[in-house]
Amino acid sequence: MKGVNHFLVVFAFLALASTLASASDPSSLMDFCVALNGPKNAGMHSYFVNGKFCKDPKLATADDFFFSGLDKAGNTSNAVGSKVTPVNADQIPGLNTLGISLVRTDYAPYGGLNPPHSHPRGTEILVVIKGELYVGFVTSNPDNRFFTKVLKTGDVFVFPVGLIHFQLNIGKTDAIAFAGLSSQNPGVIIIANAVFDSNPPINPGVLTKAFKLEKKVAEYLQTQF
């Protein structure tokens, strides 16, 4: 019986370790794997990792790990009044397989919104560089608890992986925030777009029942995206 209990403890520990290990992108088995758009110029010893061909490590240069341009403001003259500028393996090839990425978000004065969205593969840690943001996230069912905070310059907030969250500029000037994500490809699901702008469109009857709307309202919302 003692041996059985010991086995169960070990099994539980291994299961927990496996769960923790899968909480972010898998660890690389090499120093780096500089991404290429195709096998051309990859050298004799090319690899295909995370959906990208990798450059021969001997051909890598410092420029493969460099990006310039996050000092430039994003264009916020759009419907939501915000612009997200990503820095991932597409912008820095050397980020491929390293399990992290970065974004800069610009918000138009008073009302610039990074609308409710989620990152299915990454936790986000956000720091406000300029301005004042009202931010929040909602936990999963059944509680759907809402965690919210007003952030000022220098404040930091975390959005757990997979949870719906947003940021709204409540200041009179433009705002800027930077965020790190625990995946080289965290993905983004913008809730309104996914629901009302799917391709092909979701049957309005589904939206009518799910959101307790009149059918004509659901159909109208589908025309707005």
Rank of each mutant, 00 (worst) to 15 (best):
Val4Leu: 15
His6Gln: 14
Leu8Trp: 11
Val9Lys: 15
Val10Met: 10
Ala17Pro: 01
Thr19Ser: 14
Ser22Asn: 09
Ser24Thr: 13
Asp25Trp: 03
Pro26Val: 13
Leu29Arg: 15
Asp31Gln: 12
Cys33Met: 14
Cys33Pro: 05
Leu36Val: 11
Asn37Trp: 01
Gly38Thr: 10
Gly38Arg: 09
Pro39Trp: 09
Ser46His: 08
Ser46Arg: 05
Tyr47Phe: 11
Gly51Asn: 07
Cys54Lys: 03
Lys55Cys: 03
Leu59Glu: 13
Asp63Arg: 08
Asp64Tyr: 12
Asp71Gly: 12
Ala73Thr: 03
Ser77Lys: 15
Lys83Gly: 04
Lys83Glu: 09
Thr85Leu: 07
Pro93Leu: 10
Thr97Tyr: 08
Ser101Leu: 05
Leu102Phe: 15
Arg104Met: 03
Arg104Pro: 02
Thr105Lys: 02
Tyr110Ala: 06
Leu113Pro: 14
Leu113Cys: 12
Asn114Val: 03
Pro115Cys: 01
Pro116Asn: 09
Arg121Thr: 06
Gly122Cys: 07
Glu124Val: 13
Lys130Ala: 01
Lys130Asn: 02
Val135Arg: 02
Gly136Lys: 11
Gly136Val: 14
Arg145Gly: 01
Phe146Met: 14
Phe147Val: 15
Phe147Arg: 12
Thr153Ser: 14
Phe159Gln: 00
Phe159Cys: 04
Gly162Trp: 00
Leu163Cys: 02
Ile164Ala: 15
His165Asn: 11
Asn169Met: 06
Gln184Arg: 05
Asn185Arg: 04
Asn193Ser: 07
Val195Arg: 09
Val195Asn: 07
Phe196Tyr: 04
Phe196Ile: 03
Asp197Ser: 09
Ser198Cys: 02
Pro201Glu: 13
Pro201Val: 15
Asn203Arg: 14
Ala210Pro: 06
Phe211Arg: 01
Lys212Glu: 13
Lys212Ser: 12
Lys215Arg: 13
Ala218Asp: 07
